[in-house]
Nucleic acid binder design. Structure first.
Length: 909
RNA sequence: GCUUGGGUGGCGGAAUAGGUAGACGCACAGGACUUAAAAUCCUGUAUUCUUCGGAGUGUGCGGGUUCGAUUCCCGCCCCAAGCACCA
């Protein structure tokens, strides 16, 4: 054993040994319980950053912990290697995206290995390799067969900077998830996956994730899916103008089972006149409707456009122009609109209502038309106030019913949006909102002018991307046969070696004739061209962790039998920024795979740990310079407009960078490689976990890491001090222990207990603190090795062994080394079948308790007693205490509260 | 505006079936060892007053429940993240 702790030497030695023995390679073993520990796979940008280090340190600590408990652990890693940066590098620097990607992977793999993360490298995958994306295409074909993939021409989100389309999830908030540019809407033919088929299930499934997933992720998904229960109601349009289908059918609406019996395409009512269909969650307020408000793009507007007055036409155009403008996040838009002069009939009251166009009605949600009930909806209220439309209250608070029945109208200060009791609603008066909703919906169904329905905010997932660096969509367009899927035996459709990267215009693949021109697999004709769009990279990451279970399968994405053993994922660790995108897609994918018969469960991830972001005081790396410009997402400026800091979103894992420091051309600050070089991987990893709870933001201060280094050095010294003497430690516990040994054993078992509990509750910072305490206790053990008796040696040996094993998940290299020193075995901890220590409850029990004594709730004294002391004895001790008597003498004792083993409180007057 | 988290020393953070607030670490100060420095070890460190025994005040703010509240309840303020006219 070296005198001093040389991190580099030890770390290299054990990394080599682990690799040679393949110690972390996982195999199916039905006799053992499995644990699948997964971290979100990185984009191969070229360099690891501290966010990665934190992510993988968490996963590795858990993997080691579970291994030491005897679990069969699967802990894989791979590369999310399709995507924009490779293509940007190609455009800007003319490099080959494939080579660029492979180089980056090699660099980052080395970095991960230097960190000593215990991955099963034999299962490494990379999305850009044909053996992987073959199965993206395989899945695409399956989805298409199942009716889950379809192509349609629609308005799609377009990022003008990245020159590609985006899914709704990727364009959330009106900005591109990668570059932050304002998203435009353009018309384009796109392939979609029908995620909306699973909308209900995706909401329902959230329930079984409760407890295992962070609350905020669940609510974010819930909001995104946006389930809302209500009814469709048709309002006949009295027009005098021409006719046509006026209702919109663009709402990706699935009707509930009850509604399926009613008219599915109710474009025309019984008497043949046209109608406007609205969606409402408050059919009980329908007697309060003062108008129908439709979106400017609504079919009824298009149908009647020519007949509108110039004023109406002008307003329609104005609203459309205003809507197309990119909006700031917090911006409030003033209500605007105009009366079209069309009239609609309220099917309940038979009242004639004006049809308005309103800028606050969105074509994308519901039917693009609403019934405006100003008394009971804030937006309608605002609209009615602005245009001085009538406001009629039809829902009353139960205690105000009488007043409402007496008076025609109570002036409302604001919309009353709560449920209540119906008034001024004819025959429905006096019913509660809930009853009225149900009964009025039934009434509408019976009379064929409406039906109960559930709508969702969730839209289908647009997966076409006009990029080169992605998996080609396996479709051929034949002049005679039309759209033809590539047969399974012709997969993969390989990407060509390269393509003209101009960064503008259509997909680069369209400019590669060898790729585009092909033979129709159906008729054999040569007038066939390939689809030139590639798939969204979120397709790759939707199923990658199933591939890890069976990574070399050439026939199937994976063997269902093997996945059955490993899946679902027991712990998934990653950034919260994927709460909606990736985590929603992968849940959808799992349900689709279940329907393909590939898996037999609904939810892929049992437990999700969302880690906080790593924040650096100063961060700059030469290698990042080429990305900084395109990857800055959020910028903070001071009053003078000077940039203070920015968030770099390199591969979805955001990291804050200080721009002032970045202007210096030299490296300055936190780079994992340099940290590892200076402090060692173990110290870096310990600090990453110890410095803050994993879900918090972590401010990376270099000074803090000294504590981690000092701790490891001290443990090393302690073993150096004791290991010779410990060779004489008795194998079985002796009968007698001295006072010091007794104390040390107690601390050891208390620590084991505490750490085991901490791991179960997902804490990573407090176990390190507990280990530091144990090491401190060992330091306080004043008996020197040469004079230690059997009991002392046993106690120290027990403490040291436990300390090493419990520290292994955090700092595996040094622990392997110390284990070798202690046991003489070169096999390593796992190979020697060592197990995480188990606490002896007897020893963990406190031998003496310090009981605080309060007078009127204020701490006045303490007594040290044995745990067996009775309440009466405690009370007597407290009353006899000198310091207590100072506060109680001459006063009347009202009562005495004794909390067993906790405290005594004397109440005096 | 809505939703979800969160506000504890100079700093990162401990501690909630209500029971000694500030574990552990950083930083800082003093001491030991040393010719010296580094390393290491020891001591101190919420705050105010103090006769050095202690006493008062303290977990964003204001109330409440309780013998006792960082923890529970009511009403605010502030910060972060997500969503945003979702009918």
């Amino acid at each position: 054993m070296d005198e001093k702790y040389y991190a580099q030497k030890i770390e290299q030695k054990w990394q080599k040994r682990w690799a040679e023995k393949g110690i972390f390679e996982a195999r199916v073993d039905e006799s053992k319980e499995k644990f699948y520990c997964l971290e979100m796979l990185p984009y191969p940008s070229g360099r690891l950053h501290m966010g990665h280090v934190r992510n993988y340190s968490i996963g590795d600590a858990l993997s080691w912990y579970k291994r030491l408990q005897g679990y069969n652990v699967l802990h894989p890693i791979g590369w999310d290697s399709f995507g924009q940066p490779a293509e940007q590098a190609a455009i800007k620097k003319g490099v080959n995206p494939r080579e660029w990607t492979e180089d980056n992977i090699n660099q980052m793999r080395e970095q991960l290995q230097r960190l000593g993360i215990s991955y099963d490298w034999s299962r490494e995958i990379a999305a850009h390799r044909p053996e992987y994306y073959k199965f993206d295409q395989w899945f695409f074909l399956k989805m298409r067969e199942m009716g889950l993939a379809y192509k349609k021409m629609t308005k799609v989100n377009w990022c003008p900077k990245d020159e590609t389309t985006l899914s709704n999830e990727q364009a959330s908030g009106g900005v591109c998830w990668r570059c932050g540019s304002a998203v435009e809407k353009i018309d384009l033919a796109q392939w979609f996956f029908k995620i909306t088929n699973y909308a209900e299930e995706l909401v329902e499934g959230l329930k079984q994730l409760e407890g295992g997933w962070a609350e905020r992720v669940l609510t974010m998904q819930k909001h995104w899916i946006g389930r809302s229960e209500g009814a469709f109601v048709e309002f006949q349009v009295r027009t005098g103008y021409g006719s046509g289908r006026l209702n919109s059918d663009n709402s990706d609406v699935r009707k509930d089972s009850k509604a399926l019996n009613s008219t599915v395409q109710p474009s025309a009512t019984a008497d043949g006149s046209d109608c406007i269909r609205v969606f409402t969650t408050r059919i009980d307020t329908i007697y309060g409707a003062n108008s129908i408000v439709v979106a400017a793009e609504h079919p009824v507007v298009l149908e009647n456009y020519e007949k509108f007055s110039d004023e109406v036409k002008a307003k329609i155009e104005e609203i459309k122009i205003e809507k197309a403008k990119p909006r700031d996040y917090g911006e409030e838009i003033e209500k605007d609109g105009i009366d079209t002069d069309l009239k609609a009939i309220n099917p309940f009251s038979r009242e004639e209502l004006p049809v308005w166009i309103g800028n606050y009605v969105m074509m994308e949600y519901g039917t693009g038309a609403v019934m405006s009930v100003p008394a009971h909806d804030e937006r309608d209220f605002e609209f009615a106030k602005k245009f001085d439309l009538p406001i009629r209250q039809v829902i009353s608070e139960p205690h105000l019913i009488h007043e409402h029945q007496q008076m025609q109208a109570l002036a409302l200060e604001q919309a009353f949006t709560e449920k209540g009791v119906l008034v001024h609603s004819d025959f429905w008066n006096g019913k509660t909102s809930d009853d009225a909703k149900r009964e009025m919906t039934e009434f509408a169904e019976k009379h064929s002018f409406g039906e109960g329905a559930i709508t969702y905010r969730l839209r289908d997932w647009g997966i076409s991307r006009q990029r080169f660096w992605g998996a080609p969509i396996p479709i051929i367009y034949c002049e005679t046969c039309g759209e033809v899927p590539v047969p399974y035996d012709q997969l993969p459709v390989e990407l060509p070696e390269s393509a003209p990267f101009t960064g503008v215009g259509e997909s680069p693949l369209a400019k590669v004739p060898e790729f585009v021109n092909t033979v129709c697999p159906k008729c054999g004709g040569n007038k066939a061209t390939r689809e030139t769009d590639t798939m969204d990279t979120f397709v790759d990451s939707s199923w990658y962790y199933f591939r890890y279970a069976d990574p070399h399968n050439a026939e199937m994405p994976f063997d269902p039998e093997i996945v059955k053993y490993w899946a679902p994922v027991d712990k998934y660790i990653g950034g919260v920024d994927h709460a909606v995108m990736h985590l929603l897609y992968t849940r959808f994918w799992t349900k689709a795979m279940r329907d393909m018969g590939l898996v037999d469960f609904d939810e892929p991830v049992k437990n999700l740990l969302t880690q906080g972001m790593v924040v650096g005081e100063s961060y700059y790396s030469e290698t990042h310079s080429s990305y900084i410009e395109q990857d800055l997402v959020k910028i903070e400026r001071d009053e003078r407009g000077k940039i203070l800091s920015a968030i770099l979103k390199e591969d979805g894992t955001p990291i804050r960078v200080a721009v002032e420091k970045m202007s210096k051309s030299k490296y300055n600050g936190v780079d994992p490689d340099d940290m590892v070089l200076v402090y060692g991987a173990d110290a870096v990893r310990i600090f990453a976990l110890f410095a803050a709870p994993v879900e918090n933001e972590l401010v990376w201060l270099e000074t803090g890491i000294d504590g981690a280094v000092r701790f490891l050095q001290r443990v090393y010294r302690q073993l150096n001090n004791w290991h010779e003497a410990l060779k004489n430690s008795p194998p079985e516990a002796p009968q007698d222990f001295g006072n010091d040994a007794r104390k040390l054993r107690q601390k050891t078992h208390q620590t084991i207990k505490r750490i085991t509990e901490n791991f179960e509750t997902g804490q990573f910072n407090t176990p390190v603190a507990a280990l530091m305490e144990l090491s401190n206790a060992l330091n306080d053990f004043k008996i020197q090795p040469l004079v230690a008796d059997e009991g002392d040696l046993f106690a120290v040996n027990e403490a040291v062994r436990s300390l090493i094993l419990m520290l292994t998940p955090y700092a595996p290299h040094i622990c392997e080394e110390l284990w070798e020193v202690l046991t003489g075995s070169e096999d390593g901890i796992l190979a020697s079948n060592a197990r995480f220590p188990v606490a002896d409850e007897e020893w963990a029990k406190a031998v003496e308790l310090e009981i605080p004594i309060q007078v009127n709730g204020k701490l006045r004294s303490r007594v040290v007693v044995s745990p067996k002391t009775t309440n009466q004895e405690l009370e007597d001790l407290a009353l006899a205490d000198d310091k207590i008597r100072e506060h109680t003498d001459g006063k009347q004792i009202v009562k005495i509260i004794v909390v067993p083993k906790r405290l005594v409180n004397i109440v005096v007057k």
